[in-house]
Computed example of a mutant assay.
Amino acid sequence: MGFADTFVTEDIQQLRRRLLFHPLWQQIEDGTLDVERLRLFALQDWWLVREAYRLDALAIASAPDLELQEMLIQKLLPKVGGYTLLLRFGEAIGLTRKDFEQVEPLAGCMALTNFFYWMLAYGSAAEKLAAVSASEDIFVQICARIGPALMRHYGLTADDVAFFTVHDEIGKQVTPIDDVLLGRFKTPEERREVVRAVRLSHEYELMFYDTVLATPVTQKG
């Protein structure tokens, strides 16, 4: 079950399938994605991960009541420290801390980041929740397949790919909270806003993955 499955349309289910089986992930699963492009993904994802605390903080600050703020804080806690696991993954595939510090976002990565910020600044309470939660949910599902594939094809250890495998545990803690939060939005207008935010979130995420695959890469010196 994906985020807001009881709300969404078949069109969004198709979007989810495109995300879950995007060529980026398919190539990792069959071991054909070159390491340089894997490094590109790690650096671009770092740009997003680095913004995660700010995004969560904005969501918490804009929550209309204390109960909602506390639930959003509970959602944040399982993710604390996750960025260090992405750095560890990057080092395992040949990146340095300097590479991460100097990363410049590609257009698809920046577009997804800006979408989240726009929703948190201007969206309704329903849209704020749905925009980020839909992305988190789909990435948890992707990671369940990618972690083992990285170990199988790229000679990485369980510690090296913990950034991916830890998402399963994060999902177990976050999904029940999302379900409670989603239950607050019951009117037809709120449900329409959730569906629209989920659709846009998935479309921007597709743009991000497309950009990672389409951008030329050079051999790391």
Results as ranks from 00 to 15, higher is better:
Ala111Pro: 04
Cys143Pro: 01
Phe41Ser: 01
Phe100Gln: 04
Leu182Ser: 10
Asp56Cys: 09
Gln219Arg: 14
Gly183Phe: 07
Ile146Thr: 15
Lys128Phe: 02
Thr218Ala: 14
Leu86Glu: 03
Gln13Tyr: 07
Tyr83Cys: 00
Lys79Val: 13
Met207Val: 01
Arg16Glu: 14
Gln13Arg: 15
Asp34Leu: 07
Thr9Cys: 05
Gly82Leu: 07
Ala107Ile: 10
Leu55Glu: 12
Glu67Asp: 10
Asp99Gly: 04
Val195Ala: 07
Phe100Val: 04
Met110Cys: 00
Phe115Gln: 11
Glu190Trp: 01
Asp160Gln: 03
Glu101Cys: 00
Phe116Gln: 14
Ala59Ile: 03
Gly2Ser: 12
Arg17Gly: 04
Thr6Ile: 10
Glu104Lys: 14
Lys220Gly: 04
Val161Gly: 02
Asp11Glu: 15
Leu86Trp: 00
Lys128Ile: 06
Leu58Ser: 05
Leu106Val: 04
Leu20Phe: 09
Lys128Pro: 01
Leu66His: 03
Met1Cys: 08
Gly31Glu: 11
Thr6Gly: 09
Arg192Tyr: 02
Val132Thr: 13
His153Asn: 12
Ile142Gln: 09
Thr113Ser: 13
Leu48His: 10
Tyr209His: 09
Glu70Trp: 12
Arg17Cys: 00
Phe89Gln: 04
Ala92Asn: 05
Met207Glu: 14
Ala134Pro: 05
Asp45Leu: 07
Ala134Phe: 11
Leu55Trp: 10
Thr215Pro: 00
Leu86Ser: 00
Gln14Gly: 03
Leu58Lys: 11
Val217Thr: 14
Lys75Tyr: 06
Leu40Asn: 03
Pro23Lys: 05
Trp46Pro: 01
Gly108Met: 06
Leu20Asn: 00
Tyr204Phe: 15
Thr157Ser: 15
Asp65Arg: 03
Leu112Phe: 15
Glu101Lys: 07
Glu136Leu: 13
Leu43Pro: 06
Cys109Ala: 14
Phe115Asp: 08
Gln219Pro: 00
Glu29Ala: 12
Leu72Gly: 01
Gln27Arg: 13
Ser133Phe: 13
Glu190Pro: 02
Ala4Val: 05
Asp34Ser: 04
Gln44Lys: 02
Ala125His: 08
Tyr154Leu: 04
Glu29Gly: 10
Leu15Ser: 09
Met151Pro: 03
Arg97Ser: 11
Ala42Lys: 01
Val161Ala: 04
Arg54Pro: 03
Leu87Phe: 10
Phe21Met: 11
Leu181Ile: 11
Leu206Met: 12
Leu206Arg: 11
Phe116Val: 15
Ala4Asn: 05
Ala92His: 02
Ile142Thr: 09
Tyr83Val: 04
Leu76Asn: 02
Ser135Ile: 08
Asp34Thr: 08
Leu58Asn: 00
Ile28His: 03
Lys186Ala: 11
Arg199Gly: 13
Glu190Asn: 05
Leu24Met: 11
Arg152Trp: 08
Gly90Ser: 01
Met151Ser: 04
Ile93Asn: 04
Leu120Phe: 13
Gly221Val: 06
Leu120Tyr: 14
Glu190Gln: 15
Leu33Ser: 05
Phe208Glu: 02
Met71Cys: 01
His167Ala: 06
Thr84Val: 02
His202Ser: 11
Pro23Trp: 10
